[in-house]
Design a protein around this nucleic acid. Structure first.
Lengths: 152, 152
DNA sequence: CTCTAAACAGAAATAATTTCCATTTGGCAA
DNA sequence: TTGCCAAATGGAAATTATTTCTGTTTAGAG
């Protein structure tokens, strides 16, 4: 937790109860969450959480590198805790399709500047989906995979 | 155009004036388009195009491989003409950040099944952004790049 | 030419996201 | 510690995006 708050301070933002509650939630839930998920999870506990505030805070937490926005082909808005430490540079994430655990991918196969099909690469969006070690051991049936393969 | 209509027929869908008009639009505009862009472009020409119909058709055209949905970190809904021919398998696209030209990336560096950071890769989302040959020649000033680098 | 499943039109419902503004608060400076 | 002020909050309301529904039309097989 403290390491996350440090990122907030480093970017000149305030540490507020709301932000701590949201970070706490992401720490508990190991999955990625939509703004609606966050509202549902936090409502009741600490009074009401309005969606506007949640949007604002998810945005702030993403800006200062505490969360990242998961990329899907469907474009749904979902966030997860960024696994990179403060100051670490370019990286991507890989999400386990079974347990939603998030891993950090430091050495991306694509490097900005490289040539691809006649284009010079300037930026790239990469989101990997896979099975983490423990889930891979459990799931030797591939049926669930097929289902999830298309989700991006 | 005909090659696109063939994809429609191949998937058992009907070739309708609406669908032809949408494909035609994407053929003219070389950029990627949102449903709203499509509505604006097509309204007036052939009477009214309601957004519900546009959503439906963009979805259909995507399903049968004529369009693809561009992936961005922001999650906006934008479509572009798929560069892959009928029956071609797994591929990604690279978009020129200057002229929006789309290129096909057939041999992705990531392969499902490979191991990445302890995960077994099941699916992956890749969207590349770069400069096509002609734009790269023009733009030796990097200022525009910086601006676009974050867009995903 | 007929018939039928698929497509269309568009109103309306729903859901997602942003804007606004009055009130409160974290954290720095005195 | 206390006070200040920019930043954060709360929540209503506006806006925009997306889906659902229903009755009508049409592409294209036979």
């Amino acid at each position: 937790m403290e390491e996350h708050l440090e990122k907030l301070r480093a970017s000149g933002r305030k540490v507020t109860p709301r932000r701590k509650a949201i970070i706490q939630l992401f720490l508990q839930e190991q999955s990625d969450l939509s703004p609606q998920d966050v509202q549902e999870a936090l409502s009741g506990a600490t009074g009401q959480f309005g969606l506007p505030g949640i949007y604002r805070n998810l945005e702030v937490l993403t800006t200062c590198g505490i969360l990242f926005r998961v990329v899907t082909y469907g474009g749904e808005r979902r966030y997860a805790l960024c696994k990179a430490g403060h100051g670490e540079g370019h990286h991507h994430h890989i999400v386990c399709i079974a347990c939603r655990k998030v891993g950090k991918v430091s050495d991306c196969l694509y490097k900005d500047g490289m040539m691809v099909e006649g284009f010079r690469l300037v930026s790239h969006v990469v989101q990997l989906n896979g099975l983490c070690e423990s889930c891979a051991r459990e799931k030797n049936d591939l049926s669930a995979l097929q289902e999830l393969r298309q989700q991006g």
